[in-house]
């Protein structure tokens, strides 16, 4: 059981010439194994900043992030151990895999970096990972550009799982994919979550899938959490005007039965 506490975190970006940009303003939430929090908001609302801070690609300006009670280590082996616990699936599967390297390389690196399995079992583990994301073992020696978007995102998911993390950040994992395969990838994520009892931070701007796949929904607006609660409550009975606007903006049959919004006038 792993608990991640994200408490009162703010992030300021220095912008040359025009003062500071407050990307995150006092954001708090708690993510535990087996649960999914959906992080909803429009572009620029700070969703990806949270992902970057959690993966330590950026550092928070203030606030505290505790993984099982311990703050994020600054560097070295301890930081690597932290990163081994929390992995991320990037939004764009076309950009998140190195075009120069084979699928094997992408999956082997985290296995070797974190010494997940003994060296002579790495190859078997690579194939096991591919199997878990329902990819044919034949893709190992291919390069990313030879795969379709859905296949690439599966590889990216397999890579994120390679180090056997307890928490997974999925940063709009299907927004770059074709509509017809989105559900397949989301179902895969849900299935993997159940298997490994992962805690998932599902970043999206898609309220319907947020509701379907998450326990909680957190709505972010200009770096502030404007609404946070159980998924159904947030969707069916939004309190904040921004959430309402967001919900009404999506031409979504799922929201239809709440009886309000433009969706009802569609038929």
């Amino acid at each position: 059981m792993t608990t991640l506490e994200f408490s009162h975190v703010s992030k300021k970006y220095k912008v040359r010439g025009s003062g500071d940009l407050l990307a995150l303003d006092d954001v708090s939430f708690t993510l535990t194994s087996g649960r999914t929090i959906a992080l909803v908001g429009q572009s620029g609302s700070g969703k990806s900043t949270i992902a970057k801070i959690l993966t330590q690609l950026e550092r928070a300006t203030s606030g505290e992030i505790l993984l099982d009670g311990a703050p994020i280590p600054r560097r070295g082996r301890a930081l690597r151990r932290y990163r081994q616990q929390i992995r991320m699936v990037f939004q764009d599967p076309f950009a998140s895999l190195n075009p120069y390297h084979t699928i094997r390389h992408h999956l082997e690196r985290p296995l070797r970096l974190d010494h997940v399995v003994p060296n002579d079992e790495v190859d078997a583990e690579v194939h096991r990972l591919l199997e878990r994301v329902h990819l044919d073992g034949g893709v190992v020696d291919r390069r990313p550009h030879e795969l379709s978007g859905g296949q690439r995102q599966r590889v990216a998911i397999a890579r994120a799982l390679a180090s056997r993390p307890s928490l997974l950040i999925a940063d709009e994992p299907v927004s770059m994919l074709d509509v017809s395969i989105r559900l397949g990838v989301l179902n895969l994520l849900a299935e993997l979550q159940r298997e490994a009892n992962l805690g998932v931070l599902y970043i999206t701007h898609d309220l319907a899938t947020a509701r379907h796949f998450s326990d909680e929904i957190m709505v972010l607006h200009h770096g502030k959490v404007v609404e946070h609660g159980p998924a159904d409550d947030v969707i069916l009975d939004p309190q904040h005007p921004y959430t309402r606007a967001l919900r009404d903006a999506s031409p979504n049959p799922e929201v239809h039965f709440s009886g309000t919004g433009p969706a009802s006038s569609r038929s």
Partner: peptide, 13 residues
């Protein structure tokens, strides 16, 4: 700033 470099960093390379 490409994603695959960020991904490598996030993996602790």
């Amino acid at each position: 700033n490409r994603d695959f470099i960020q991904a490598a960093r996030a993996n602790g390379e």
